[in-house]
């Protein structure tokens, strides 16, 4: 509708988002997003300070303690102990390190692969675009978890291989998103102006177009952080990811499976850790979308 002129103040309200303080204020206006941010910040602190915070740091690192097997949650072992007598709270705390680094490393790696390819495909179009997009099509035609399982079983079970598998399953999604954005952005007059000036294609792509097209990828990535933790946990659960005695949450849940009726605490607490973390990342992603999207829609 042609109300743009009179509603410039609303556009300005949008522009105010440029200043980071308003950005954070808006993000926190949604209480859930704010809460999720607090949770994620706590998780990061927990991960960094794991040896200090964990009541039994050695248990977290995997030292077995056969005399204290299957202890119920108590003041001594708040989350109880596992089949090897290790303190589950300490294991979960150390697991935070693994989960957070898996998600961060894989997502960043996937973006590093996807963004240049997506930008190049979108900017040059034609033959290059055809080839790159057919490659992504192949990946996109399978569920990412399935691809990850196939790749992980091919590479052999280990945490590092699981991460590689996740990266391989994930990057085509980002390539697609960024390519579509670039194709729209390259038609804008500021790109034509840069070409007329004589700016090189590379500089146009990465200095003019990329900063204007990356927002949707960031939103997607922040939502995927949780998803990746889930995938890594799934891979570990079926034995293709982290290997014992690593305190990976999915792996803990997997080993707890046998004792689920006798020692409920063994599976519930690491499960809750996965739930809370994934939920928080998703909420942050939603919050980011809410705040970033209207601005990208503003002319």
């Amino acid at each position: 509708m042609a109300v743009s002129g009179d509603l410039t103040f609303q556009r300005r309200a949008g522009r105010a988002l440029e200043s980071s303080r308003t950005f954070v204020k808006l993000l926190f206006r949604n209480r859930l997003t704010g809460a999720a941010f607090v949770v994620v910040t706590l998780l990061v602190v927990v991960a960094l300070l794991a040896p200090v915070l964990a009541p039994y740091p050695d248990d977290g690192r995997g030292v077995v303690n056969p005399s204290e097997r299957f202890q119920k949650p108590s003041s001594e072992h708040i989350f109880g102990t596992d089949d090897m007598g290790r303190d589950i709270l300490s294991r979960v705390i150390f697991g935070t390190r693994i989960s957070l680094s898996i998600s961060l490393v894989t997502i960043v790696a996937a973006m590093l692969i996807a963004i240049p390819l997506g930008v190049i495909a979108g900017y040059f179009g034609g033959f290059i675009d055809e080839i790159l997009m057919r490659i992504t099509d192949v990946f996109l035609s399978f569920p990412p978890l399935l691809i990850a399982i196939v790749v992980a079983s091919f590479l052999g079970p280990s945490l590092e291989n699981a991460m590689i598998a996740i990266v391989i399953a994930w990057w085509p999604w980002y390539s697609r998103v960024i390519r579509a954005q670039v194709m729209a952005a390259k038609e804008r007059p500021y790109v034509s102006a840069a070409r007329c000036i004589g700016t090189s294609d590379w500089k146009i792509m990465f200095s003019h177009i990329l900063p204007n097209t990356i927002a949707p990828v960031i939103i997607q990535a922040s939502m995927d952080l949780g998803c990746v933790i889930l995938t890594a946990a799934s891979l570990s659960f079926i034995g293709l990811g982290a290997q014992p005695p690593q305190p990976e949450w999915g792996l803990i849940v997997s080993s707890a499976r046998t004792y689920i009726l006798d020692a409920w605490w063994y599976s519930v607490f690491p499960g809750l850790a996965i739930l809370v973390t994934v939920l928080s990342f998703n909420l942050i992603g939603d919050g980011l979308r809410e705040v970033l999207d209207p601005r990208t829609r503003v002319r």
Partner: peptide, 12 residues
Amino acid sequence: QIVFQDPFWSLN
């Protein structure tokens, strides 16, 4: 050199 119509999209 060229100056475009749309002053909103002609500047990055």
